[in-house]
Design a protein around this nucleic acid. Structure first.
Lengths: 211, 211
DNA sequence: ACCTGAACACCGTTCAAGT
DNA sequence: ACCTGAACACCGTTCAAGT
């Protein structure tokens, strides 16, 4: 008989590992069955833990959804920054366009993430950390706009208003696409998607550069 | 003892009345508790009927939600047309702007309706009648765009692409507003809302008129 | 034809009890 | 400190049974 060395089981979550495991499990459910497929009990089962265990790490289901949304915002922010790194020396207009294309592409690539992030009512009271993650994404856009105004590449105006215009356009486009509301045939493949995104932002940005 | 005249009880639904009553009940639940507060059982109870009764009139919960969304699309279409009647002799640009303002205002006035209409995943497989209702709303916008192109007030181009640009902008703006994602202070009252809506569409429409 | 009541498989949430 | 199991109040959905 071998000496029994006390060790942790592979499926025992101490030290807050369970929190992370639940977020991962929630993401998996989200990817498979969408928002309707996401349940606390399901996530607990995937994590190999009883249905009551999550409540040690999350106040309620909303708290788990908020944690997932936060993760999504970080991914979105990273995607926007990555897209900007692709054109470091471009004009502000070109960089705004690149960010816009990235925004829409992110939504198309990760529709479940995108929906959780912008589910609105999904999380009744968004925690401060979620709001902060959202602000950071918004900051990427806003910083660009401010640069554009300061350098005279964009018309003078309230940065928040110009940011809202750009954001609204790409956000609406992203939403309509993942909700399958765009006329079929307009967006079949990735190339057409980029082309449409570029075309629409171009239209707006002519107005933004304007006068 | 009075002669007992056979009559229908006030809370008995024959002749398909229950279908309508369930839609109304669903709307009430939607207005009170949002999408999370909408349940088939709850609607049945509001209609004064057993929890199994709705299944005589709706295949499943999705079918009820779809019926509500259809109603919402009709209201939206009516709102857009009403807004256009306010400026029958305006330029296409002015009329597009009016329709855009109406679109955003509708979302702000009826956020629950708006969310159900554009919930995307909410209804797994939208029935043809729901798609038709959506197309009619889209048609109001598209007809305007076509008029604008034909009269030379808008640049030449694919009507669907120009429509998509306009729709994306107002749809994104509406979504961001009802999800409370716009920087606070930017939109406090109805006047500011109209002003912002008008400003943003103006920016885009300059691009659309363009060249 | 239309509705009811019981039943089933799922939820979210709480709480005493275990280690 | 962290997890389990039973329990409760809710769901959506089905089906035999009633009128």
């Amino acid at each position: 008989m071998a000496i029994r060395v006390p060790r942790k089981k592979a499926d025992s979550y101490q030290h807050g590992d369970l929190r992370h495991a639940l977020i991962q499990a929630g993401l998996k459910l989200l990817g498979e069955g969408g928002v309707r497929g996401l349940s606390l009990r399901g996530a607990a089962e995937l994590a190999g833990v009883s249905h009551a265990a999550p409540y040690r790490h999350f106040k309620d289901k909303d708290a788990l959804v908020a944690a997932i949304a936060e993760e999504g915002f970080r991914l979105l922010t990273a995607r926007l920054r990555q897209e900007l790194e692709g054109c470091p020396d471009g004009t502000v207009i070109a960089r705004l366009q690149a960010a816009g294309i990235g925004y829409v592409a992110f939504a198309v690539d990760h529709p479940a993430y995108f929906r959780v992030i912008f589910a609105g009512e999904l999380v009744a009271e968004p925690p401060p950390s979620l709001k902060a993650a959202g602000q950071e994404s918004y900051g990427v856009l806003r910083d660009l706009i401010v640069q554009g105004i300061d350098s005279g590449q964009l018309r003078a105006g309230d940065p928040d208003e110009l940011s809202l215009a750009t954001w609204s356009l790409v956000h609406g486009l992203a939403m309509l696409i993942i909700d399958r509301r765009v006329p079929p045939g307009l967006i079949d493949d990735q190339a057409k998607l980029r082309q449409i995104s570029a075309g629409l932002t171009q239209l707006l940005l002519e107005g933004l550069a304007g006068r």
